[in-house]
C-alpha cells in the first residue's frame, strides 16, 4: 500500500496511529506543536488505575515512532487546511506547507483553565492548585504549601469546568474522578498523617478497576468522600482555605478548612485544535469537540472525506481509550487509501 498521511498532533493518539500506519507501509508526517512528543502525558506523574509511571507511556510512544516511514516535524502549529482533488495542503503558522493524501487530526484537548471558576480563587489564594500542578509536585516527590510547610488537610474539588453550565461545559470529563482518587492515594502515601477529602457530585467510576480503586481509597487509605459541589473558597487569616459545600447526604451545608485544595480541571476542546479548522469546515458537537460522522460506527471519521480523528479531539478519553481510538482511526485511514487508489 502507498500513500502519505499527515498526522496533526504528537500525543498519545497521533503517535500510536503514526506507528501503526508506518508499519502498514504508509508514509507518515507527524506534526507536533511542541519541541517533543507525548502531549499531556509528559506532564503527568503516574496513571490510573495501576499507578504506572507516565514515562512508560512516553517510552512506548518513542518506540512507536521509530520507523523509516515516519517523519516527525516539531514546533509547527497547523493553522488551516484545504483539499484539492484527492490531496490535502496544510499550512503552519510559520508559513510551512505540508501535503498528504489523508489527514488524521489528533490534536487532543486543553485542560480547563481553573481560574475561570473565580469562586475557587485559583491564581489568587496561595494554596489552591490544580490536578496538573499536583502531578508536577508528585514528580518532584515534594508536596509543600507556599510557606514551605507540609499540608495536613487536603481537599479535592471534583468537576471543575465539567458538568457545569456556568463554564459552558455540560459534559463529564470522565477522568477527573478517578484522577482525584489516584492523587488522593498518592498524597496519603507521601504524607500518611494527612487527612484527605474528595468533594464530588457523583463518583463516576466507569473504567476497568476504577471502582476497586475508589474502595481501596476509602478502606485502606481512609479518604473521606463528601457529596456536594464546592460553592466557594476563601482564605482566612491563618492562610487556611475555608471551603463551603453542601453535604447533600446529610442535607446540610458544611464548612471545612483546608491547607491545600486541588481543583480537578476538566478537559476542553483544544484551542490549537480549533485553529486547524479556521474556516469551520469540520462539524463540531455541542461539547465543541470535533463531531465524528457517527458516534457508533464512525467515531474516527469526519464530515470531510480523507480527514480522520483520533483521541481526545473528539471527546474526553483516557490513555487506554485513546490508544484504541487511534488504532480504529488507522483502520479507517487504510480503508480510505485502499479504495482511493
Amino acid at each position: 500500500m502507498t500513500g502519505n498521511v499527515i498526522v496533526i498532533g504528537g500525543g498519545t493518539a497521533g503517535v500510536e496511529a503514526a506507528g501503526q500506519l508506518a508499519r502498514s507501509g504508509i508514509g507518515v508526517t507527524v506534526i507536533e506543536k511542541e519541541s517533543t512528543i507525548g502531549g499531556h502525558v509528559r506532564n503527568w506523574h503516574h496513571l490510573f488505575p495501576d499507578r504506572r509511571s507516565s514515562s512508560e507511556v512516553i517510552d512506548y510512544l518513542r518506540k512507536q515512532l521509530k520507523h523509516d516511514n515516519i517523519t516527525l516535524v516539531t514546533g509547527e502549529l497547523i493553522s488551516g487546511f484545504d483539499k484539492k482533488g484527492g490531496s490535502f495542503r496544510l499550512k503552519s503558522s510559520s508559513g510551512k506547507e505540508f501535503h498528504g493524501d489523508a489527514v488524521l487530526i489528533a490534536s487532543g484537548f486543553d485542560l480547563f483553565r481553573s481560574e475561570r471558576k473565580e469562586e475557587y480563587g485559583y491564581g489568587i489564594y496561595d494554596n489552591v492548585i490544580t490536578s496538573a500542578d499536583l502531578e508536577s509536585m508528585f514528580r518532584d516527590k515534594s508536596i509543600l504549601l507556599r510557606n514551605g510547610r507540609e499540608p495536613e488537610k487536603i481537599g479535592f474539588v471534583h468537576c471543575v469546568g465539567s458538568r457545569d453550565e456556568k463554564s459552558g461545559n455540560l459534559y463529564c470529563s470522565k477522568l477527573c474522578c478517578i484522577t482525584a482518587v489516584k492523587q488522593a492515594i498518592g498524597l496519603k502515601e507521601l504524607i500518611p498523617g494527612s487527612k484527605v477529602f474528595c468533594f464530588y457530585m457523583d463518583m463516576r467510576m466507569g473504567g476497568a478497576l476504577y471502582e476497586e480503586m475508589y474502595r481501596e481509597a476509602q478502606e485502606k487509605y481512609g479518604i473521606s468522600f463528601i457529596r456536594g459541589k464546592v460553592s466557594e473558597v476563601s482564605e482566612n487569616i491563618e492562610g487556611k482555605l475555608v471551603t463551603k459545600v453542601e453535604d447533600t447526604l446529610a442535607g446540610r451545608p458544611l464548612r471545612i478548612e483546608m491547607d491545600l485544595l486541588v481543583l480537578m480541571a476538566g478537559m476542553e476542546m483544544s484551542k490549537d485544535g480549533e485553529a486547524i479548522d479556521i474556516s469551520g469546515k469540520l462539524n463540531r458537537g455541542v461539547n465543541r469537540f470535533f463531531a465524528p460522522a457517527d458516534y457508533h460506527f464512525g467515531s474516527n471519521i469526519s464530515n470531510i472525506k480523507g480527514v480522520f480523528y483520533a483521541g481526545a479531539c473528539t471527546a474526553p478519553m483516557n490513555i487506554t481509550e485513546t490508544i484504541s481510538h487511534a488504532r480504529g482511526a488507522v483502520s479507517d485511514v487504510l480503508n480510505y487509501l485502499t479504495n482511493k487508489h
Binding site: G121, I124, E235
Partner: peptide
C-alpha cells in the same frame, strides 16, 4: 494571596 490574580479577574 495574589493580587495579580485579582487584577486578571478585574
Amino acid at each position: 494571596m495574589e493580587n495579580e490574580g485579582k487584577k486578571r479577574v478585574w
